[in-house]
Every structure is written in C-alpha cells, then in structure tokens.
Design a protein around this nucleic acid. Structure first.
Lengths: 145, 145
DNA sequence: TGAAATTATGTGTATATACACTTATTATTT
DNA sequence: AAATAATAAGTGTATATACACATAATTTCA
C-alpha cells in the first residue's frame, strides 16, 4: 500500500493561487485603513474613482480595458458608485456609448480618504523595500498576459 | 481657473490596485486553460482542492488560515465543491469542528486538469524569467501583512 | 454542577467577478 | 433604402468575497 499524499506537487506552488491570496490579503488591509476615514468605501471602488479622475468622460469599454476588469463586472461596479453619487454618466452623439465621470461628491470622497490610503501604501511599500520597482514591473507583466 | 485634473497623483500608482488587476487577469488566463480539460472547474476551486490534497481532514478554520481566505468565504466556496462531489466532510469528537477532505472524484478531477494547469504555469513563469523566485518572495510578504 | 466565556461554524446582506446571451444603436453592403 | 454586420452596453445566472450577526458545542470556573 503506497502513500496517497504528496501528489500534485506541481500544483502546490502556483502563481495564480499566490496572487489571488495576496490580492485578498492586501485588499483587506487597505479596506481597514479606508474604514478609518469614516467613509463607506472600499479599495476596489477607490481604484475605479481614481481611474476616472485621470481622464474624464470614459466609455465603459475604455474603462474596462484600463482596469483590466471584465466589462460586465464594471457595469455592476459602476452601479454601486452611482448609487453613492460618486459618478455621473451621460450619452454622446453615438447613442451606444455611455460616458462616465467623477461627480463633485466623488472628488470629495477621494480627498477625504487620501491620507488613509497613503498610510496603507507607505506600510505596504516599506515591506518591499528596494524590490518595489521590479515587483511592480513583474506585476505589470502578469496584468498584460 | 485652475486645472481640475492631475490630482490624486499619489493614488494612481497603487499596489493594491495593481495586484487586484493582476489577480483578475491571471485568473482568467488559468481558467481558459482549465476549460480545455473539459471539466467545469476554475482556478479558485483548484487551489482549494490542492490545499486539501496536501493535508487531509482539515477544519474550516485551518483551511481558511492556509488559504488566507475569510472563513465565511471559504464556507461558501466549499459548498460549491461539495455540490460537485469533489470533497467529503465529517464531524470528529468535538462536535463543533467540521473536517473536510478530497473525495475520490476530487482526486480524479485534479488528475484530469493537471496537464492544462501545468501549461498555464509554464507560460506564466516564462514571463517572469529569473525574477520568479524574488517575485514569489515578495508576494509572500504581501500575503502575510 | 450550572452559569458564563470561549470556540467553531453558519447565515444575512452587499459587493465583486465573469461567462453566455440579449438589446439597442450605428455602420456597411447590396 | 432595406437588409445585414458590427459595435456598445445591459441582463441572467453562478460563483467569490467579506463584514456583522447568529447558533451550537465545548471549556472554564465560581
């Protein structure tokens, strides 16, 4: 009778698993800091609002590409942001396209959470030390595969 | 009248956002490969089954710690695996604890997806090249913060 | 021993994710 | 101009995620 364990050794060391783990962990960490702002907002929502702050009047598809977020996922995420009044949407000459931008309230909430977000970032970057740039480059690679 | 853009420059370069992006992207990639196995299984489910294959009869809380997955999230994820017949659960002498292990069907599905998973891993690791080990170390740091 | 604290797990609710499919609008072709 | 193709976005469904709260079993201790 042989041992039934120690199989799948090739599967136990998996980049996908590691990154998902890390994403769960770091998200919770950032959310803890965000909570201290008193605003009811999370890391995912912030990342969308920040993307919108960079270039206004993006279509859903453009935003979806930039965030590497499935378009239909984004549609639902935007609904939550809209419910909170942090974004505004309108239609252009092409009736198919829907343009989204930050609302005044959206800018205000970003301003409010900024210092707490910064705290989370500083703590996180400290962990990586001088590996930071290389780490980000490699993350970038995995974001574009 | 000043420009209203280019604010939040500190927020645009965020590790949490980058890792979440990367997690979405790499998960989709792995899922594409898994689909070629013909089995209806995804990367998250595989990672849980693999963890179960390492040490049998884990409690929910132990598994939750090892996977860095919120316990109540895991409860729901296990329900899906159970529905597919890939795991078995039973209670020990302590009536509070619930032990989970791979079923025979669970081992079979891991065997079946193994080559496709491997393909995804190889492609991914190739991208990182010799940065792989360092990258994993840094991911590990962010998984334990 | 029985009340109180602790521990392990589950549920309610809300958001995040993505695939398959649908709808609506615009562009192209005949 | 009408039929067809292409494009942009939404919906149905299922899973993933996590916080707040609830439940059930065990342990502790007065």
């Amino acid at each position: 009778m042989e041992s039934k364990k120690k199989q799948y050794s090739e599967l136990t060391d998996c980049l996908c698993t590691s990154i998902r783990k890390s994403a769960r962990n770091i998200s919770q960490k950032y959310n803890e800091y965000l909570k201290q702002s008193g605003e009811d907002i999370n890391a995912n929502q912030v990342s969308i609002l920040v993307t919108l702050s960079q270039i206004e009047n993006k279509t859903i598809s453009e935003l979806s590409n930039q965030l590497r977020m499935e378009r239909t996922t984004l549609t639902r995420n935007l609904r939550v942001l809209d419910k909170s009044g942090w974004i505004k949407t309108d239609y252009g000459s092409d009736g198919r396209m829907k343009y989204t931008k930050l609302s005044k309230k959206g800018r205000q909430v970003l301003n409010k959470i900024l210092p707490h977000w910064k705290k989370a970032q500083i703590q996180t970057k400290k962990l990586l030390g001088e590996d930071l740039q290389l780490f980000k480059q490699n993350l970038e690679k995995l974001t574009n595969l």
